[in-house]
Design a protein around this nucleic acid. Structure first.
Lengths: 241, 241
DNA sequence: CAGTGGTCTAGACCACCTC
DNA sequence: AGGTGGTCTAGACCACTGA
């Protein structure tokens, strides 16, 4: 019976304020944010309330706490990966070191599908990036990546080749766009001629298709990705709990 | 330099004690556990410390808090599903109601593979359950499920047919075994004759193979499952963040 | 050493559920 | 009304970092 519409606890309002500061760029990925006591002073609440707000955001991987140092904005550039979007594991043993090989960076106009997913107008300019991820010198993942050229202007194959860590590292340091979450849809498909060629398998071989939409602050979708995974020696790993 | 081995905060020790009570069966799935103030008295700590321990366990989906009522042991029998192990979604629209159709319940001896995964001796008695999940009257998932017959004695096809909700519901209410977490490995494979038949697709069609190991309290592996998903109208959904 | 986050406590009050 | 979990506060002390 009791119907309490929009009861928002203080710590959640504080969370909203911190989020706004992240979205506005007051604190950028990798930055340290003010200490808990400073924030308590600034927002006029107790340190415990600040703490609870930050706790939630740390669980969401938006902030990272480091005892004795401070609280930092999560970043793909950090040596310790806070974001772990690639759920690939080796069938036997550990995942060998990998190499990203950009193949193509093509200008195109957004079709209906891409436009809808990235919240663009049909016909808006986009880049289509194709690249292969190699593990232990064998091709394992072939990606087709769709990006708005408004958000990622002047992207070229040469730029892609300079980045040896990950695409999200590049997006963050060059374009100031930080991916904070993503949704994935997984399908089993037959290799077409293009993916077969790049993954060095026969056409028709079953591949794992991973469609991903990535979001930055403010729930803005900024990347659509179709990854074809060869699952002979590797698999997609997931934990349920 | 500072090297503090095994510093365990109080709330984490409390968490261990609560966990022991869960493993020992003092509180069973669906039960209400003592209130925070009672536990504080029992363990001789403040309510805030109890709260933090329960907070962690609620995040892990071991306990479920309900304001005004109390804190409960998570259960697969609860109307509101706390555990959501099936990551299936429809390509278009909502997931239609589903029906589980048991096909076979076969006695067998554990091979090397199954024995290793379920921590059994090679040759130990196991059940192999085969079943199909139908969505909107179309077969979508074909499962082969391996269970120790020591843990699940006297399992039969007839028993399986009586359970219309989920296997884990049956395991919990009939055998007192509650699955609390699972690992999954996903592969793309070609349909063999058996899975093709049950999924009503042609042999060789690409299928999503989901291998799952499920664990109960105390990190004991109790189920190995190989699920073949037909991903024409459905997909495996995952959130990264 | 001072400053950070991390833990623990005690108490007040609020929101929700049930009787 | 009385019990439950949920929020908020204030203060003490611990663990970790870096200068």
């Amino acid at each position: 019976m009791a119907y309490s519409p929009a009861f928002n606890p203080l710590y959640r309002q504080i969370r909203g304020l911190i989020l706004r500061s992240l979205e506005s760029g007051e604190w950028r990925p990798g930055d340290i944010i003010p200490s808990e006591s400073e924030l308590a002073l600034r927002f006029g609440v107790s340190q415990g309330t600040i703490r609870k707000a930050i706790d939630e955001m740390a669980v969401e991987n938006l902030l990272v706490r480091r005892q004795g140092k401070g609280t930092f904005v999560a970043s793909h550039n950090d040596p310790n990966a806070f974001f772990h979007f690639l759920r690939l594991a080796a069938n036997e043993g550990k995942l060998p070191p990998h190499e990203n090989v950009p193949i193509e960076c093509e200008r195109a106009a957004a079709g209906q599908n891409v436009a809808k997913i990235l919240a663009l107008e049909v016909g808006a300019p986009v880049y289509i990036v194709r690249r292969v991820m190699r593990f232990g010198n064998a091709p394992v993942v072939f990606d087709e990546i769709y990006l708005s050229s408004v958000i990622f202007p002047d992207l070229t194959l040469d730029i892609l080749k300079t980045e040896h860590r990950s695409l999200y590292t590049l997006f963050e340091s060059r374009y100031g766009v930080c991916m904070i979450r993503a949704n994935e849809r997984l399908y089993a498909v037959s290799a077409d001629s293009l993916s077969a060629k790049h993954l060095e398998v026969n056409e028709g071989v079953p591949l794992l298709l991973v469609e991903r939409v990535s979001y930055t602050y403010g729930d803005r979708p900024v990347e659509w990705r179709r990854g074809f995974y060869s699952t002979r020696d590797y698999h997609y790993y997931n934990e349920l709990g």
